[in-house]
């Protein structure tokens, strides 16, 4: 596997299972998943509804714990982490992008982007500066004082991406990030992801759309809680470079 080539993979899941409930009503959402993702990879996870994609993402994002199996994030065994450490991992190592944006309501775009930095204990002046830079990067430099309710869906999702990236995490996790967006906003978001990937960050994106999967370097397909295929695309170096140059 590719794990041998790079000393420390970002994600290293071994025999991860997740069972909801117990007895007759138990749901085996994940049935023994092995997955290694190296630094800088851009992975798309696809599969039918209910196949366990979101469950996987929640475990990877330290929002939920596996029933069985081992999960190393950036070399750290997540089972050993207490609640406070898990919060710290989410804060420092992971950036989340959700289908439903999940911005804090009644709070300006700028404040939303500052939030992870506030929890990280970054000083106010520096926080302002970094949040403004992150907003500029997603093309919303002039929308900092707007409330989420005053932004379009595509703009809200870009604010969410700025918030996910502001702490410079090693891993960007996105669960159907374009599921609620039109084709133009989808393209804007995907261009941003290309940009992030070109910058060397690891991306794990869950999607139903081929358009999204096309951009990834690697596509993992799920069925009933198992990985059924894991294919690497030919490096789209030329295309990525062209896109990066255009942006």
């Amino acid at each position: 596997m590719t794990g041998a080539r790079v000393p420390r993979p970002v994600l290293d899941l071994r025999g991860v299972t997740k069972v909801f409930g117990a007895g007759d009503t138990a749901v085996h959402a994940l049935g023994g998943v092995d997955l290694v993702v190296d630094r800088g990879e851009y992975v798309a996870v696809m599969g039918a509804s209910g196949s366990g994609k979101s469950t996987l993402m929640n475990i990877v994002g330290c929002l939920d714990v596996p029933t069985r199996g081992r999960y190393l994030l950036d070399g750290v065994d997540t089972r050993r982490l207490d609640e406070g450490r898990q919060a710290m991992v989410r804060n420092r190592k992971i950036g989340f992008v959700f289908q439903s944006f999940n911005l804090v309501p009644r709070t300006s775009a700028q404040s939303n982007v500052e939030l992870p930095l506030a929890y990280a204990g970054v000083r106010l002046a520096q926080r302002r500066e970094r949040a403004a830079a992150a907003l500029a990067r997603v093309g919303l430099a002039d929308r900092g004082h707007h409330l989420p309710s005053e932004l379009s869906g595509g703009q809200q999702q870009r604010v969410a991406i700025a918030r996910a990236l502001v702490t410079e995490p090693v891993l960007l996790l996105a669960d159907e990030p374009t599921g609620a967006l039109d084709s133009r906003s989808t393209r804007e978001v995907l261009d941003l992801f290309d940009d992030v990937s070109a910058g060397g960050r690891t991306i794990l994106v869950i999607t139903h759309e081929e358009e999204v999967a096309e951009r990834a370097h690697r596509v993992v397909r799920f069925r009933d809680g198992h990985i059924v295929s894991d294919e690497r695309r030919a490096p789209r170096g030329a295309r990525a470079a062209a896109a990066g140059g255009a942006a």
Binding site: G84, A87, N91, N102, V104, L115, Y119, A120
Partner: peptide, 12 residues
């Protein structure tokens, strides 16, 4: 909102 805050790193 509490869930969002926790997801982006708020501690107890």
């Amino acid at each position: 909102e509490i869930g969002i805050r926790k997801a982006i790193g708020a501690r107890r």
